[in-house]
Nucleic acid binder design. Structure first.
Lengths: 238, 238
DNA sequence: GTGCTTAATATTGTATACATGATTAGCCGA
DNA sequence: TCGGCTAATCATGTATACAATATTAAGCAC
């Protein structure tokens, strides 16, 4: 059994109920972002309830949260599926990232310190390593984490949360429209960006982020993928 | 009984279940945005369930959605309350609006047509009228609606939805930190803005929106309420 | 074999019952 | 009169039962 499942199944005497929900939410969310659950995959309430050893009530709560974040699509009486973003949605998401993430760079450059820069460099390093060792799923999530951490450094929690949602959706978009192997962010882009930020060059960082995002978007190709039945048992555990 | 309640109570044979939920959600959301439900107000599940004639299950679903939109705050085992934004949150929200709403203006100026401009003018007119007739609650919501509609004209659904959330939260912020009588948007600001947009002057519109939002923010009195002992005699005495 | 109708099954939607933890009220002693 | 203790009440957290609907399978006519 995986750590996640073990943690989730622990009785309430050891884990607060809310924390258990949070753990399960993160497990599903991560599985989607890491593309172990692919766009279009059906998410049956019973199956999830059994895997995480809680009742459907709790699962429904989590599915609804994921639906509001647009990671899953809830169709009345037909259940939940991992969202398959349309081309229009993809454009909206990347336009939004252009506006928000680029707009945040000057403030981030103003606020960043040695400690934060080191943390970012470590994240970038982990990402490169994941790519080298073929852990594509992990690399995808780490890349999103990097962008989110960056937004958090702006000090604006509301915008950071919005960027987090945009990055999650971007992972879905990459899963549907991205090329295999060539995933999103270029290897050394993130390191270059940290350099501009440390140099307090907000405008340079903004322009670089703009090109960076444009490059990701340009790497997408609008072709469809076939769907397959997910093996929840294998994905979540054991 | 209000129309909303009547509509919500109609049996499923007349109304789809999901639509009923949507109606109830909107009823609660509007009540919060219009400040008929004030920040800090307790929202008991039983009470809401009885008012709208559904079970607690449905109410919980709605409360959770409102919580994710940060209109209500859910404290474990202590129930739901209308969110009372902190000063920090208020700053974040208005900074976010600066970045997003201003950034959207050039695109809106590019896309706006005669029909859309007329619609906006009508909304501005309704807002002024509500103010004149002392319907402050309605005016608050109409003002938020105006900003949301503007964002929708950008064509970016993701950003429009984000602006919608920001505007809802702004209403809460005004409820806590705003002066009575002087509510947010100046009477003719919105009309002036429409003029710049119709003239396809995106940069002018952007600058105006920036000043507009700054003016709203400046009108707030950002004093954190102190936890002082209230003078009960003065508050309740006659 | 194809298409239609009908029955069986599977899955979600909703309400309710019960468990658990929080709040309040009452009581007593200092 | 205040503070602290205990019991009663109240509200929320969770699971489960049942109803409603969608999907699938089977039977039948052509």
């Amino acid at each position: 059994m995986s750590d996640v499942q073990a943690a989730a199944k622990r009785p309430a005497s050891e884990k607060e109920g809310d924390e258990r929900h949070e753990i399960i939410y993160r497990a599903v969310s991560d599985a989607i972002v890491e593309q172990r659950l692919k766009p279009g995959a059906r998410l049956r309430e019973d199956a999830l309830a059994e895997v995480f050893a809680i009742s459907r009530t709790g699962i429904r709560k989590i599915l609804q949260r994921l639906a509001l974040e647009q990671l899953v699509t809830l169709t009345p009486r037909r259940g939940a599926r991992v969202t398959r973003p349309t081309a229009d949605e993809a454009k909206d998401v990347f336009d939004a990232r252009q506006l928000v993430e680029c707009g945040l760079m000057p403030e981030v450059a103003r606020r960043i310190g040695a400690k934060e820069a080191a943390e970012l460099r470590d994240m970038a390093r982990q990402e490169r390593q994941a790519l080298r060792t073929g852990q594509q799923s992990v690399a995808i999530r780490l890349s999103a984490d990097f962008h989110v951490r960056l937004a958090q450094l702006s000090g604006n929690a509301t915008l950071a949360e919005f960027v987090e949602r945009l990055c999650s959706r971007s992972s879905l978009i990459l899963a549907v429209y991205g090329h295999r192997g060539h995933l999103g962010c270029e290897s050394h882009d993130h390191d270059d960006l940290i350099g501009y930020l440390e140099a307090r060059n907000g405008e340079r960082a903004r322009a670089f982020m703009s090109r960076h995002l444009k490059a990701i978007e340009a790497s997408l190709s609008m072709v469809e993928e076939e769907e397959s039945v997910p093996d929840l048992q294998q994905i979540f555990g054991d």
